[in-house]
Amino acid sequence: MQILLKDEKLDFTNFLFVALMIFVFSGVGGFVYETIFYKLAWGYFVKRGTTFGPWIPIYGVGGLCMTLSIWRWQKNPLAVFLISFFVCGILEFIVGFFLFHGMNIRLWDYNTEPWNFGNIAGYVCLRSVLIFGLFGFLLFYGVIPAILSIKNHLPKSLFRFISCLLASAFIADIIIHMILKGMSHF
């Protein structure tokens, strides 16, 4: 299987290591966005996300969903925006709905947040999906080319090591948080 990302053909193995970096960069990007947004909206800093590190898992998953959904249309900026808008909006709604109705967890609630026009049951709003559309644009025209440039300038084994190290730290952070959160219920 070959995937063309920004004029570079990647076999499955190379794509996997690039995807790990997309997961990490998207998670960090979501953390930065939410930190800035809530500082502007509420006037003070709030540690966003459920992990200890500077990343938010749903943004990492969203970055991967965007990549897998868009790569065939990456040369069409409008398609990149619209697919990101819809794919991540649907992801946010499904995850929010499942967490609330399946696990009785509410990680976000647009009913109580500023600038929530187009709010659907607190799970998704127009602001969030517009941001996801912009993130898709940034991902395909900024982040992925930067990741590919790093990949091409580093020895293959070093790029793979860095990809695994960063993704492992992110995933371990998620698992540790889930274990500790689970212990707090007893």
Rank of each mutant, 00 (worst) to 15 (best):
L139Y: 01
A169M: 13
H177F: 12
I179H: 14
Y123N: 11
R48L: 00
N116M: 05
L154T: 09
I179A: 12
P114T: 03
C125Q: 06
F170G: 00
L91G: 04
F140H: 03
G60E: 02
I70L: 14
M178E: 15
I147K: 02
D173Y: 07
I175A: 07
G96F: 06
L99C: 09
A41E: 09
K151L: 08
L158W: 15
S163W: 07
R72H: 14
V129G: 06
D173H: 04
L154V: 08
L130H: 01
I179Y: 12
L148S: 06
L5N: 13
L64A: 03
K156Y: 14
V18R: 03
M103P: 05
E92T: 08
H153F: 14
L165R: 02
E92D: 10
G118S: 05
L78C: 10
N76Q: 14
Y110A: 02
K39S: 06
Q74D: 10
L138N: 00
I120S: 07
Y59D: 02
H185A: 10
S184T: 15
V24M: 03
M103C: 14
F161T: 08
S69A: 13
F161R: 04
C65S: 04
R48G: 00
W42G: 02
F100A: 09
L180T: 08
G62F: 02
M103N: 13
K9C: 09
G96I: 05
N111D: 15
W55L: 00
L10W: 02
G122I: 13
V87P: 03
R106V: 15
V87E: 01
D11G: 15
V143L: 12
P155C: 14
F12Q: 13
L158Y: 15
